[in-house]
Protein backbone atom coordinates (compact mmCIF):
# COMPACT_ATOMS: atom_id res chain seq x y z
CA UNK A 1 0.00 0.00 0.00
CA UNK A 2 2.65 2.43 1.06
CA UNK A 3 4.69 1.80 -2.03
CA UNK A 4 1.69 2.27 -4.26
CA UNK A 5 0.70 5.63 -2.81
CA UNK A 6 4.26 6.84 -3.04
CA UNK A 7 4.34 5.86 -6.66
CA UNK A 8 1.27 7.89 -7.50
CA UNK A 9 2.69 10.95 -5.80
CA UNK A 10 5.83 10.65 -7.84
CA UNK A 11 4.08 9.87 -11.09
CA UNK A 12 1.51 12.64 -11.08
CA UNK A 13 3.73 15.61 -11.93
CA UNK A 14 5.63 13.54 -14.47
CA UNK A 15 2.53 12.54 -16.38
CA UNK A 16 1.28 16.12 -16.31
CA UNK A 17 4.36 17.79 -17.73
CA UNK A 18 5.85 14.87 -19.58
CA UNK A 19 3.20 13.47 -21.85
CA UNK A 20 1.33 16.72 -22.36
CA UNK A 21 -1.90 16.40 -24.33
CA UNK A 22 -2.10 12.63 -24.22
CA UNK A 23 -2.41 12.64 -20.45
CA UNK A 24 -5.59 14.73 -20.69
CA UNK A 25 -7.32 11.90 -22.51
CA UNK A 26 -6.33 9.30 -19.96
CA UNK A 27 -9.35 7.81 -18.29
CA UNK A 28 -8.83 7.84 -14.55
CA UNK A 29 -10.76 5.93 -11.93
CA UNK A 30 -12.47 9.23 -11.07
CA UNK A 31 -13.97 9.35 -14.56
CA UNK A 32 -15.12 5.78 -14.18
CA UNK A 33 -16.78 6.64 -10.88
CA UNK A 34 -18.51 9.62 -12.43
CA UNK A 35 -19.92 7.54 -15.27
CA UNK A 36 -21.05 4.88 -12.81
CA UNK A 37 -22.80 7.50 -10.68
CA UNK A 38 -24.76 8.81 -13.65
CA UNK A 39 -25.61 5.31 -14.82
CA UNK A 40 -26.79 4.34 -11.34
CA UNK A 41 -28.96 7.44 -11.13
CA UNK A 42 -30.53 6.80 -14.52
CA UNK A 43 -31.00 3.14 -13.69
CA UNK A 44 -32.73 4.01 -10.46
CA UNK A 45 -34.99 6.50 -12.24
CA UNK A 46 -35.94 3.84 -14.77
CA UNK A 47 -36.63 1.29 -12.07
CA UNK A 48 -38.49 3.65 -9.75
CA UNK A 49 -40.83 4.95 -12.45
CA UNK A 50 -41.55 1.70 -14.26
CA UNK A 51 -42.14 -0.20 -11.03
CA UNK A 52 -44.54 2.49 -9.88
CA UNK A 53 -42.54 3.56 -6.81
CA UNK A 54 -42.62 7.10 -8.11
CA UNK A 55 -45.69 8.44 -9.85
CA UNK A 56 -45.22 8.95 -13.59
CA UNK A 57 -46.46 12.52 -13.24
CA UNK A 58 -43.55 13.53 -11.04
CA UNK A 59 -40.73 11.71 -12.76
CA UNK A 60 -39.99 10.35 -16.19
CA UNK A 61 -37.99 7.23 -16.87
CA UNK A 62 -34.98 7.72 -19.16
CA UNK A 63 -36.46 5.34 -21.69
CA UNK A 64 -39.71 7.28 -21.85
CA UNK A 65 -37.76 10.53 -22.33
CA UNK A 66 -35.90 9.05 -25.28
CA UNK A 67 -39.13 7.63 -26.63
CA UNK A 68 -40.85 11.00 -26.34
CA UNK A 69 -37.91 12.69 -28.05
CA UNK A 70 -38.21 10.40 -31.07
CA UNK A 71 -41.94 10.79 -31.03
CA UNK A 72 -42.14 14.57 -31.21
CA UNK A 73 -39.24 14.74 -33.63
CA UNK A 74 -40.89 12.17 -35.93
CA UNK A 75 -44.41 13.59 -35.88
CA UNK A 76 -43.08 17.08 -36.54
CA UNK A 77 -44.37 18.70 -33.33
CA UNK A 78 -40.92 19.76 -32.25
CA UNK A 79 -39.48 21.48 -35.31
CA UNK A 80 -41.58 24.66 -35.64
CA UNK A 81 -41.07 25.37 -31.92
CA UNK A 82 -37.36 24.67 -32.05
CA UNK A 83 -36.84 26.80 -35.14
CA UNK A 84 -38.83 29.69 -33.73
CA UNK A 85 -36.87 29.69 -30.48
CA UNK A 86 -33.57 29.55 -32.33
CA UNK A 87 -34.65 32.43 -34.56
CA UNK A 88 -35.67 34.54 -31.59
CA UNK A 89 -32.39 33.89 -29.82
CA UNK A 90 -30.25 34.53 -32.85
CA UNK A 91 -31.99 37.75 -33.87
CA UNK A 92 -32.13 39.12 -30.31
CA UNK A 93 -28.57 38.13 -29.56
CA UNK A 94 -27.20 39.48 -32.84
CA UNK A 95 -28.94 42.80 -32.24
CA UNK A 96 -27.60 42.93 -28.70
CA UNK A 97 -24.07 42.11 -29.85
CA UNK A 98 -24.17 44.71 -32.61
CA UNK A 99 -25.65 47.49 -30.51
CA UNK A 100 -23.56 46.62 -27.42
CA UNK A 101 -20.27 46.63 -29.28
CA UNK A 102 -21.03 49.72 -31.35
CA UNK A 103 -22.26 51.77 -28.38
CA UNK A 104 -19.29 50.50 -26.37
CA UNK A 105 -16.91 51.74 -29.05
CA UNK A 106 -18.68 55.09 -29.33
CA UNK A 107 -18.38 55.50 -25.57
CA UNK A 108 -14.69 54.71 -25.73
CA UNK A 109 -14.02 57.06 -28.60
CA UNK A 110 -16.05 59.93 -27.20
CA UNK A 111 -15.95 59.81 -23.38
CA UNK A 112 -18.60 62.53 -23.16
CA UNK A 113 -21.15 60.15 -24.68
CA UNK A 114 -20.39 57.71 -21.87
CA UNK A 115 -20.74 60.45 -19.28
CA UNK A 116 -24.15 61.18 -20.79
CA UNK A 117 -25.40 57.66 -21.45
CA UNK A 118 -23.96 55.66 -18.58
CA UNK A 119 -26.57 56.67 -16.04
CA UNK A 120 -29.44 55.67 -18.32
CA UNK A 121 -27.91 52.33 -19.19
CA UNK A 122 -27.14 51.57 -15.56
CA UNK A 123 -30.72 52.40 -14.64
CA UNK A 124 -32.23 50.17 -17.32
CA UNK A 125 -29.75 47.44 -16.51
CA UNK A 126 -30.86 47.52 -12.90
CA UNK A 127 -34.45 46.64 -13.78
CA UNK A 128 -35.01 42.90 -13.49
CA UNK A 129 -35.72 42.16 -17.14
CA UNK A 130 -38.39 39.60 -16.31
CA UNK A 131 -40.38 42.30 -14.54
CA UNK A 132 -40.89 44.30 -17.71
CA UNK A 133 -42.07 41.33 -19.74
CA UNK A 134 -45.77 42.25 -19.21
CA UNK A 135 -45.05 45.68 -20.63
CA UNK A 136 -43.15 44.24 -23.58
CA UNK A 137 -46.08 41.98 -24.35
CA UNK A 138 -48.39 44.98 -24.22
CA UNK A 139 -46.17 46.88 -26.63
CA UNK A 140 -44.93 44.17 -28.95
CA UNK A 141 -47.56 41.43 -28.67
CA UNK A 142 -47.04 37.83 -27.62
CA UNK A 143 -45.15 36.84 -30.78
CA UNK A 144 -41.66 37.11 -32.15
CA UNK A 145 -41.02 40.80 -31.41
CA UNK A 146 -41.51 40.81 -27.66
CA UNK A 147 -39.14 37.83 -27.34
CA UNK A 148 -36.46 39.49 -29.44
CA UNK A 149 -36.72 42.67 -27.39
CA UNK A 150 -36.46 40.73 -24.14
CA UNK A 151 -33.40 38.77 -25.30
CA UNK A 152 -31.90 42.03 -26.49
CA UNK A 153 -32.40 43.60 -23.07
CA UNK A 154 -31.06 40.48 -21.36
CA UNK A 155 -27.82 40.53 -23.34
CA UNK A 156 -27.02 44.04 -24.48
CA UNK A 157 -25.72 45.53 -21.24
CA UNK A 158 -23.35 42.68 -20.52
CA UNK A 159 -21.85 43.08 -23.98
CA UNK A 160 -21.78 46.87 -23.76
CA UNK A 161 -20.03 47.03 -20.41
CA UNK A 162 -17.51 44.32 -21.18
CA UNK A 163 -16.60 46.14 -24.39
CA UNK A 164 -16.13 49.41 -22.53
CA UNK A 165 -14.13 47.74 -19.77
CA UNK A 166 -11.94 45.99 -22.32
CA UNK A 167 -11.24 49.15 -24.25
CA UNK A 168 -10.45 51.02 -21.04
CA UNK A 169 -8.05 48.32 -19.94
CA UNK A 170 -6.06 48.93 -23.11
CA UNK A 171 -2.60 49.62 -21.78
CA UNK A 172 -1.50 53.24 -21.86
CA UNK A 173 1.72 52.10 -23.57
CA UNK A 174 -0.27 50.64 -26.47
CA UNK A 175 -1.84 54.04 -27.03
CA UNK A 176 1.51 55.79 -26.73
CA UNK A 177 2.92 53.57 -29.48
CA UNK A 178 -0.01 54.52 -31.70
CA UNK A 179 0.62 58.20 -30.99
CA UNK A 180 4.34 57.91 -31.69
CA UNK A 181 3.46 56.63 -35.14
CA UNK A 182 0.93 59.47 -35.64
CA UNK A 183 -2.05 57.15 -35.83
CA UNK A 184 -5.39 58.87 -36.39
CA UNK A 185 -8.19 58.40 -33.91
CA UNK A 186 -9.87 55.88 -36.21
CA UNK A 187 -6.65 53.93 -36.66
CA UNK A 188 -6.09 53.91 -32.92
CA UNK A 189 -9.58 52.57 -32.27
CA UNK A 190 -9.56 49.90 -34.95
CA UNK A 191 -5.95 48.80 -34.87
CA UNK A 192 -5.26 49.12 -31.15
CA UNK A 193 -8.28 49.52 -28.90
CA UNK A 194 -10.57 46.91 -30.46
CA UNK A 195 -7.96 44.14 -30.59
CA UNK A 196 -6.94 45.00 -27.03
CA UNK A 197 -10.58 44.82 -25.93
CA UNK A 198 -11.33 41.51 -27.68
CA UNK A 199 -10.76 39.16 -24.73
CA UNK A 200 -13.00 41.18 -22.43
CA UNK A 201 -15.54 41.65 -25.21
CA UNK A 202 -15.79 37.90 -25.73
CA UNK A 203 -16.16 37.38 -22.01
CA UNK A 204 -19.32 39.49 -22.20
CA UNK A 205 -20.51 37.76 -25.36
CA UNK A 206 -20.13 34.36 -23.75
CA UNK A 207 -22.03 35.34 -20.59
CA UNK A 208 -24.73 36.98 -22.67
CA UNK A 209 -25.15 33.83 -24.78
CA UNK A 210 -26.08 31.88 -21.68
CA UNK A 211 -28.52 34.49 -20.39
CA UNK A 212 -30.11 34.96 -23.83
CA UNK A 213 -31.53 31.47 -23.75
CA UNK A 214 -32.83 31.91 -20.22
CA UNK A 215 -34.64 35.00 -21.43
CA UNK A 216 -36.31 33.38 -24.38
CA UNK A 217 -37.48 30.25 -22.56
CA UNK A 218 -38.87 32.31 -19.73
CA UNK A 219 -40.80 34.67 -21.97
CA UNK A 220 -42.17 31.83 -24.09
CA UNK A 221 -43.42 30.12 -20.96
CA UNK A 222 -45.20 33.25 -19.85
CA UNK A 223 -47.04 34.08 -22.98
CA UNK A 224 -46.53 32.76 -26.44
CA UNK A 225 -48.19 30.71 -29.13
CA UNK A 226 -45.08 28.74 -30.01
CA UNK A 227 -41.48 28.10 -29.06
CA UNK A 228 -39.71 25.63 -26.79
CA UNK A 229 -40.77 27.52 -23.66
CA UNK A 230 -44.36 27.35 -24.84
CA UNK A 231 -44.01 23.66 -25.55
CA UNK A 232 -42.58 23.19 -22.07
CA UNK A 233 -45.45 24.89 -20.26
CA UNK A 234 -47.93 23.15 -22.55
CA UNK A 235 -46.52 19.74 -21.64
CA UNK A 236 -46.78 20.74 -17.99
CA UNK A 237 -50.46 21.47 -18.48
CA UNK A 238 -50.90 18.14 -20.25
CA UNK A 239 -48.92 16.38 -17.48
CA UNK A 240 -46.54 15.06 -20.12
CA UNK A 241 -43.53 14.70 -17.86
CA UNK A 242 -41.22 12.89 -20.33
CA UNK A 243 -41.67 15.76 -22.77
CA UNK A 244 -40.84 18.31 -20.07
CA UNK A 245 -37.64 16.44 -19.31
CA UNK A 246 -36.77 16.24 -22.97
CA UNK A 247 -37.30 19.97 -23.56
CA UNK A 248 -35.23 20.88 -20.51
CA UNK A 249 -32.41 18.69 -21.82
CA UNK A 250 -32.77 20.16 -25.30
CA UNK A 251 -32.69 23.76 -24.04
CA UNK A 252 -29.62 22.97 -21.95
CA UNK A 253 -27.88 21.48 -24.97
CA UNK A 254 -28.72 24.51 -27.12
CA UNK A 255 -27.40 26.80 -24.42
CA UNK A 256 -24.16 24.86 -24.09
CA UNK A 257 -23.69 24.72 -27.87
CA UNK A 258 -24.32 28.44 -28.17
CA UNK A 259 -21.74 29.29 -25.52
CA UNK A 260 -19.29 26.85 -27.15
CA UNK A 261 -19.88 28.49 -30.51
CA UNK A 262 -18.97 31.91 -29.13
CA UNK A 263 -15.94 30.41 -27.39
CA UNK A 264 -14.91 28.81 -30.69
CA UNK A 265 -15.09 32.17 -32.50
CA UNK A 266 -13.00 33.69 -29.73
CA UNK A 267 -10.51 30.86 -30.06
CA UNK A 268 -10.23 31.42 -33.81
CA UNK A 269 -9.61 35.13 -33.34
CA UNK A 270 -7.40 35.17 -30.26
CA UNK A 271 -5.82 31.82 -29.46
CA UNK A 272 -2.60 32.41 -31.29
CA UNK A 273 -1.58 35.40 -29.26
CA UNK A 274 -3.42 35.31 -25.96
CA UNK A 275 -1.40 33.71 -23.22
CA UNK A 276 -2.22 30.08 -22.63
Amino acid sequence: MAAKSRESVVLQPVSKSGTGKASKRNITYINVLQVLTVAALLGYMEYAVTSGKINRIFMASPSSIVEEAFHIAADGTLWPHLILTLQEVLVGYALAAGVGIIVGLIWTMFPKTEAYGNVFCSAIMAIPKTAILPLLILWFGIGFQSKVVLIFLFSVFQILYSTVTGAKQCKIEYLKVARVFNATKMQTVFKVMIPAALPSMFNGLRLAAATALTGVVFSEMQSAKAGLGYLLSESQNLLNTPRMFFIIILVTLISVCFVKLIAAIEYLLCHRWSRV
Binding site: K176, V177, F181, K191, P195, S274
Partner: peptide, 26 residues
Amino acid sequence: GVVFQDASLYPWKTIKKNIAFGMDIS
Protein backbone atom coordinates in the same frame (compact mmCIF):
# COMPACT_ATOMS: atom_id res chain seq x y z
CA GLY B 1 11.34 57.13 -33.13
CA VAL B 2 10.64 55.88 -29.63
CA VAL B 3 11.65 52.62 -27.95
CA PHE B 4 9.66 51.92 -24.81
CA GLN B 5 10.71 50.38 -21.55
CA ASP B 6 8.98 47.01 -21.94
CA ALA B 7 8.96 47.07 -25.75
CA SER B 8 5.16 47.59 -25.67
CA LEU B 9 4.56 45.29 -28.59
CA TYR B 10 0.96 44.52 -29.46
CA PRO B 11 0.31 40.96 -28.24
CA TRP B 12 -2.22 40.30 -30.99
CA LYS B 13 0.24 40.99 -33.79
CA THR B 14 3.12 38.83 -34.92
CA ILE B 15 6.63 40.24 -34.63
CA LYS B 16 6.56 41.08 -38.31
CA LYS B 17 3.20 42.85 -38.07
CA ASN B 18 4.40 44.71 -35.00
CA ILE B 19 7.44 45.97 -36.87
CA ALA B 20 5.18 46.93 -39.77
CA PHE B 21 2.75 48.85 -37.55
CA GLY B 22 4.20 52.33 -38.17
CA MET B 23 4.38 51.71 -41.91
CA ASP B 24 0.78 50.45 -41.93
CA ILE B 25 -0.33 53.61 -40.20
CA SER B 26 1.43 55.85 -42.68
